[in-house]
Design a protein around this nucleic acid. Structure first.
Lengths: 139, 139
DNA sequence: ATTATATATGAACAATTGTTCATATATAAT
DNA sequence: ATTATATATGAACAATTGTTCATATATAAT
């Protein structure tokens, strides 16, 4: 998007190359593949971004995130809300915390969890717009 | 966010209830749990939204999406770009298509894939902002 | 010190997932 | 009609994942 390089390749520059194992691979649009490689994120960053979406990609965790969007909650309330054991919720909160999606605040024996930053609500809202406007091919 | 109901619960309204199996469950903040339940999305919608993020939550598929952000690509170019078999790419494109994240256009024997709508790039960009600003606890 | 409460954690296991391999389909060229 | 090209699809299998169960830890109350 930020890049001014050509956006459509109608000219077919067919070619073939070999991968690191010497295997023969087919490339129809050499320049387009080269562009994709130049623009690609660092592997480390792709992995982290994918992991972030994967964490949001489980119904239990997503429901936790959406519930926290209305304000902080403690573990046993989340368990009651979800109809799951507190252990299961705690395991999922740990994963959410590891990816900086939620943070915790202790008050006595109780831990209150909250969304960690405003990006998360934004991602959810755009995701909702996406599913509400389009493809009916659910699963 | 859009709701004007109370956002923090300092008063602890302890209570217990029973789930549909008659099991005893603990709720520390009754009203907070009730609020979460009122605000929750329909189950069907939560499932779909989670599935959308899950699909973005695999490095291969995320790389496909990010590559398509620079313009359409055919299957064999994506395979070359990713260093994967065309079969593997085709399987993943099917999942992306099932969730309306990409669409396809045929030109002869070649199928060109492109992002299906502008939400997708937005979600990626906000996700990137999130991982670039915060938590260092990677995995 | 002992007990209760709230939550975290490790191991285990069924369920889900991503890739490979073999094969099928769709279009184009001869 | 036959062959080549580009992609799709089903089955199989190793790898990953979410929950449960048992146990550990941290704080508070007595």
């Amino acid at each position: 998007m930020t890049n001014s390089e050509s956006k459509s390749f109608t000219t077919s520059q067919k070619g073939t190359t070999h991968d690191e194992n010497g295997c023969h691979i087919r490339i129809v649009h050499l320049e387009r593949v080269a562009l994709a490689k130049r623009q690609a994120l660092a592997e480390e960053e792709s992995e982290r971004l994918a992991l972030t979406y994967k964490i949001l990609g489980d119904p239990t965790r997503l429901k936790i995130v959406m519930a926290l969007n209305d304000g902080e909650m403690c573990v046993c309330d989340l368990a009651a809300f979800l109809g799951l054991s507190e252990s299961a919720v705690s395991h999922q909160l740990r994963r959410l915390k590891d990816l900086a999606l939620v943070r915790q605040r202790r008050q006595g024996q109780t831990l209150f969890y909250a969304l960690n930053d405003s990006h998360i609500a934004t991602i959810i809202n755009i995701g909702l717009e996406h599913i509400r406007e389009g493809g009916r091919k659910w699963i």
